[in-house]
Design a binder for these strands. Structure first.
Length: 231
DNA sequence: TCATTAAGTATGC
DNA sequence: GCATACTTAATGA
C-alpha cells in the first residue's frame, strides 16, 4: 500500500486538533480503498470490523424493511465519518452503505476506536456531534414522512441533496452524484412513477432540469415553498 | 390524493 | 440489442 499523504486529513473536523505526528500515525494504520458506483461498503447486520472516513464520493445509507423494500435513510458527503458502530455501542452495522458515485474511503479496525477517542483530541466530541446531527436529520425526515404530502416530501428530499452535495453552476444547484427516480422514491416513501410525474411537472415550470440520473435545481426558492418549510 | 398497472420511449454499454 | 431509466395515461382505492 502506498503511503497516504497527510494533507488528506489535515483540516477535517475529527482530526483538526492533531499535530503532524498524530496524523501520520493515524494514516499509517488506515486502509484505503476505491468503490465503484453501486458497490456496498458494508452491509446491515454484519459484524462491524472497521470504521470509515469518506474521502471522496457520496454514499447512500439504506435499510431494509420487513417486506424487503429498501429505504434510503440518509446520504454521506466527503469528510464525514461513517460505519461508526462503536460510537453507538454496537458490534454490527445498523445499515448498509452503498457508493452512490465512485468513492474513496479510509478505514481502520474497530479495535483502534478506543485509542482514537482517548488519544486524539477532538475525535470523540466530533463523532458524537456527527451522530447527533444524523439522528436529528433522520428525525426531521421522519416527521416529514408522517405529516407532509408527497410533493412536499419529494421537494424536501431534492433540496436536501442539493444543499448537502450541490455545486453551483450557470443553471442552478446541481446534485453532485447520480440519482434515479427510484432512489428518490426510496427516500420519500412513494413510487418512481409519482417522482417522475413530479419532476416532469417541475421541469415544465422551470424549478428543476433533469436528465437521466442527474438533477439541477434551477429555482431553489420555489422548491422551498413547495417543500412546506416553516422556517 | 396517490398507488398500481400497463404500455410506451429514451439512453447508454 | 438489451437492460435500465424514464414518461405518460388510465383506473380505482
Amino acid at each position: 500500500m502506498p503511503k497516504l499523504d497527510e494533507s488528506l486529513l489535515t483540516g477535517l473536523p475529527p482530526f483538526s486538533r492533531l499535530d503532524r505526528g498524530q496524523i501520520r500515525q493515524i494514516l499509517d494504520q488506515a486502509g484505503s480503498r476505491r468503490y465503484e458506483e453501486g458497490t456496498p461498503i458494508f452491509r446491515e447486520g454484519h459484524d462491524a470490523e472497521r470504521f470509515y472516513l469518506l474521502l471522496d464520493g457520496y454514499l447512500r445509507v439504506v435499510q431494509a424493511t420487513r417486506d424487503g423494500e429498501e429505504i434510503i435513510v440518509l446520504h454521506i458527503s466527503p469528510g464525514q465519518l461513517f460505519g461508526i458502530a462503536p460510537a453507538l455501542q454496537r458490534d454490527t452495522y445498523p445499515a448498509t452503505a452503498i457508493a452512490a458515485a465512485e468513492t474513496i474511503a479510509l478505514s481502520w479496525p474497530v479495535r483502534l476506536w478506543d485509542t482514537f477517542t482517548r488519544e486524539y483530541e477532538g475525535f470523540a466530541t466530533e463523532t458524537y456531534r456527527t451522530v447527533g446531527q444524523r439522528i436529528g436529520q433522520i428525525q426531521e425526515t421522519l416527521t416529514e414522512l408522517a405529516t407532509q404530502a408527497v410533493e412536499a416530501r419529494v421537494a424536501s428530499a431534492v433540496l436536501r441533496m442539493a444543499n448537502q452535495s450541490g455545486r453551483k453552476t450557470e443553471e442552478g444547484i446541481e446534485i453532485a452524484f447520480p440519482v434515479t427516480r427510484q432512489n428518490i422514491a426510496d427516500m420519500t416513501g412513494t413510487t418512481l412513477h409519482t417522482v417522475s410525474r413530479l419532476l416532469s411537472g417541475w421541469e415544465k415550470n422551470g424549478l428543476v432540469r433533469s436528465t437521466r440520473k442527474h438533477i439541477v435545481v434551477t429555482d431553489a426558492h420555489r422548491l422551498v415553498l413547495l417543500s412546506g418549510a416553516k422556517d
